[in-house]
């Protein structure tokens, strides 16, 4: 059987010492607030860049990425409604057959 090398034992000791502190930090309210704020900033920057790009495309009378995405989401919502309806139809047909009607 291979024994654990000394460098690994050293790492494990260090990891055991650090891990509880790191885990406590990521489970704290402060971490949640910092992360939420950072995500908010990233989102705002993204929106500004998107809006600049959208204005550029609209100036030359072309649809921007956001327009295409909006359209795809709308088609997606329709697709979902159809999907749900067909599944529910299938289910009610099965129920009817099951009850012998």
């Amino acid at each position: 059987m291979t024994s654990t090398p000394s460098w690994r034992r050293t790492y494990d000791v260090a990891e055991r010492a650090v891990a509880p502190h790191a885990e406590r930090w990521v489970r704290s309210g402060e971490y949640a607030q910092v992360t939420a704020a950072a995500l908010g900033v990233r989102r705002r920057i993204g929106r500004v860049l998107d809006s600049v790009a959208t204005t550029g495309w609209h100036l030359v009378n072309l649809p921007a990425r956001s327009d295409v995405q909006k359209l795809r989401r709308q088609i997606g919502a329709l697709d979902r409604d159809l999907r749900r309806l067909s599944l529910q139809l299938e289910q009610s047909r099965t129920d009817r057959e099951g009850s012998g009607q």
């Binding site: 489970r27 309210g29 949640a32 607030q33 992360t35 939420a36 704020a37 995500l39 995405q69 989401r73």
Partner: peptide
Amino acid sequence: LGPFSNLTTRGGLDVTSLLDPDG
């Protein structure tokens, strides 16, 4: 659930801000 629940309950994160343009 730790960080998962903290982000919304204690960090006040709006889930909408995590969504990609595909929703």
